[in-house]
């Protein structure tokens, strides 16, 4: 099997930063600011009215070196509405659905001069979309012998007037981008695993919370067993930015040292939808904590309900 490597990590956040108290004052929450603070949240980021999910995606990709081109772009959104950059008002005016099919991946290709890239859209994996994109990139690079690099992007902003809280977590508008390459250096993709439970496609916040503690352990165990690993082989867990306490509990359930759970961006960044893993992974790398040979487990739960995990292994000369 051909190996693939995660290289270059970048992200962007909505331009308006505010505290959890601000969010409460502005009526953006369901829970109290104090309860969200107890869950680890301090600040979050929102887009101003004129900043779109696509703007976030473009800002994230600007942080990457894609000058040499890529073979494919996988563009993932959690909210399907963010999967079109067309103007809904134009559709309302002439009822032509082409206005609903102005795809951001195509625009990204043009804006960055990535003319040889083909595009894929992922829009039904909720917050797990970025991990889904990594998995798809790995599969495509294994299959397409002439390909060497795939650009993965995830970008979401909440609609105006949305509550910035999901399943008791404070939300940020944000995007993440990375390149999956067929050659080292980088973080070798060791295994990826996904569970979808469509029976919970309309799960309430409480069902999402309730099932988190049974499905995530299963996801992790299944993912590790696919990789022929055990939890003892994992050096770092890089999860999503959801309730800090939830991961303290999961660490106990999984037998992971809680200090190995890297969720450092949670207070400042909040839950930036499917960008979280990349944001935390970048923070771990920038902290100089990743040593060659170490294994990193990325975990995400999302609507659908979907759960995805990816195991990475650091190579010499991390990008």
């Amino acid at each position: 099997m051909k190996s693939t490597y995660l290289q270059d990590l970048a992200f962007s956040l909505g331009a308006i930063g505010g505290s959890v108290k601000d969010a409460e004052r502005e009526g953006l929450l369901r829970s109290s600011a104090d309860d969200l603070a107890a869950a680890g949240f301090d600040r979050h980021h929102r887009c101003p009215p004129d900043e779109t999910a696509y703007d976030l995606a473009r800002a994230a990709v600007t942080g990457l070196d894609v000058a040499d081109g890529v073979d494919a772009i996988i563009y993932s959104t959690c909210l399907p509405g963010n999967g079109s950059v067309g103007d809904p008002a134009a559709f309302a005016a002439d009822r032509d659905v082409k206005h609903l099919m102005e795809f951001p991946a195509s625009r990204l290709q043009a804006d960055f001069g990535l003319g040889s890239a083909v595009v894929f859209g992922l829009s039904q994996q909720g917050c797990t979309g970025m991990l889904g994109a990594l998995r798809l990139a790995d599969a495509l690079l294994a299959r397409e012998s002439g390909w060497s690099r795939v650009l993965c992007v995830a970008a979401d902003r909440f609609p105006a007037d949305a509550v910035y809280e999901q399943s008791y977590n404070l939300i940020s508008d944000g995007a993440a981008a990375c390149v999956v390459s067929a050659a080292p250096p980088g973080l070798r993709l060791v295994a990826a695993h996904q569970i979808t439970n469509g029976g919970l496609h309309a799960a309430t916040d409480d069902e999402s919370v309730g099932t988190f503690f049974s499905y995530v352990p299963r996801l992790v165990r299944d993912c590790l067993s696919r990789a022929g690993l055990t939890i003892g082989d994992i050096d770092w867990v890089v999860p999503q930015n959801t309730n800090h306490n939830a991961w303290q509990i999961l660490a106990r359930l999984l037998g992971v040292d809680p200090s190995k759970v890297w969720q450092k961006s949670l207070p400042e960044t909040a839950h930036a939808i499917s960008a979280d893993n990349i944001i935390n992974l970048k923070s771990l790398r920038n902290a100089g904590r990743i040593r060659p040979g170490e294994r990193i487990l990325l975990v995400m739960a999302g609507h659908g309900l979907n759960w995805q995990a990816v195991v990475l292994e650091a190579t010499e000369g991390l990008a």
Partner: peptide, 26 residues
């Protein structure tokens, strides 16, 4: 249809931590 998994058994400390942590869920 909902495919709920059978519960995992957990130790008392983990459960107590969880009860405490969910006080914030109002």
């Amino acid at each position: 249809r909902r495919r709920l998994l059978r519960p995992e058994f957990c130790d008392l400390g983990t459960f107590a931590f969880m009860v405490d942590a969910t006080r914030g869920l109002g």
